[in-house]
Design a protein around this nucleic acid. Sequence first.
RNA 1: GUGGUUGUAGCUCAGCUGGUUAGAGCGCUUGAUUGUGGUUCAGGAGGUCGCCGGUUCGAAACCGGUCUUCCACCCCA
Length: 455
Amino acid sequence: MAQKPSIPQGTRDFSPLEVQRRNYIMSTIKKYFEQYGFMPIETPSFENSDTLLGKYGEEGDRLIFKVLNNGAYLSKVKPEDLAEQDEKSLTPQISDRALRYDLTVPFARYVVQHQNEITFPFKRYQMQNVWRADRPQKGRFREFTQCDADVVGSTSLYQEIELIKLYDTVFTALNLTGCTIKINNRKILAGIAEMIGAEDKLIDFTVALDKLDKIGIEKVKEEMLSKGINAVALEKLHPVFTLEGDYAQKLATMQDLLKESAIGMKGVEELTFIHENMQQLPLTGTNLDLDITLARGLNYYTGCIFEVAAPAGVSMGSVGGGGRYDDLTGIFGLKDVSGVGISFGLDRIYLVMEELGLFPDSVRAGVDVLFLNFGMQESRVALGELFRFRESGIKAELYPDEAKMKKQMTYADRNDIPFVILIGEDEIKTGKLTLKDMKTGKQETLDAETIIARF
RNA sequence: GUGGUUGUAGCUCAGCUGGUUAGAGCGCUUGAUUGUGGUUCAGGAGGUCGCCGGUUCGAAACCGGUCUUCCACCCCA
């Protein structure tokens, strides 16, 4: 045998059942995206490198898959760059394109490029693969699918409220209950930084604060100290570290703490507005929780930020995330178009649903009925019946070969086909069909119409 | 990018301090069963031990490299 074939690190093949289950999740998401008024677009798998680079921070740039130029790509390279093996200057000389890293930045590019065709506010959804040159681990792949819904051209906080409800609607429909939608606001984080005189260290500050859950107060303080945030400032942060209570109580504490900060108070105001309006829109399958430590992508988010945590007891990173970005299109030359959006992580949702056994039995790969093949005469009759069933909308197939019954039954069994129809000598004589329920093993001999009516 | 971990039959894994011809269970296949699957019984097929190199009389085992798996960090969906 030749050398065993393989697939690249962090990629996967999907079996028929897996694809059906992924389609089940995607069709549910799509249904509600459309119900909420979002319209589909698609963008290329790869973009010009300029479009992507510099939008995700230094870490993000490192994880972008670069596409090697075609042709004599080395001919234009400066010999000294080649000799020094300096990737920073070499990469742009041999690669002009890159695989997309997320769907939001390509969307911003799309909006700018098609601004004259678009009527704002523009609501779009997109369900496509993205690629990241990350080290794979649990729930982390190098090729995965994101399902995004974004609206640009509206600063209304109703958008945030709708997106929270959209998360709740979809997760409830998937029967994936118990997820927590964590919400925070970048303006609050900016306000806290301002209050402790660490505006210039906003990123270091939020990155450290984000770890509070994971490593505890003392370690977070250590990290902040090491980043140059002074002890007096840390003292002021005490209420943040020990924040407790429900959404309203936490918000009250923050309001008191941030009363000197204009931007901080703006953040509090926004979260208060959302909270008040959520009162008449109770969530059915998820919980909304104000999490001041939530930081997220610091690159383009400016207002509310979201992240969806899997139900307690399931160890999985976030299954969704999003937020408001006030000036992402500005990078591409279109000012003053605020956007806000959320993303569903299809692959992680799949893993969580699999772990919790939430896929309905009806989501199967195979047909509903298999006609057994008893030989030339019999299978000819079966072939006619087969198409009668199909025309009635029943997924059906005929076993193609005149194989042993055992083999044909095993085929039905292995493929989770719930019913088998036998057409032999006796059936042809009486004009009836024998229907076997594979689960119970029971058989009945009935008219074709009667059987069709059962499906 | 950093640290650890894994790789032996289609799958899950044994394989001793290096020593003849590489093992199990499940699965696959054939038959017991010429109109009946999931149970049982009997037979059979299937592996250059991830790949490349090194040490050795001798390597699945030891060493180096590389690819891959899983995990933690980083970051994120």
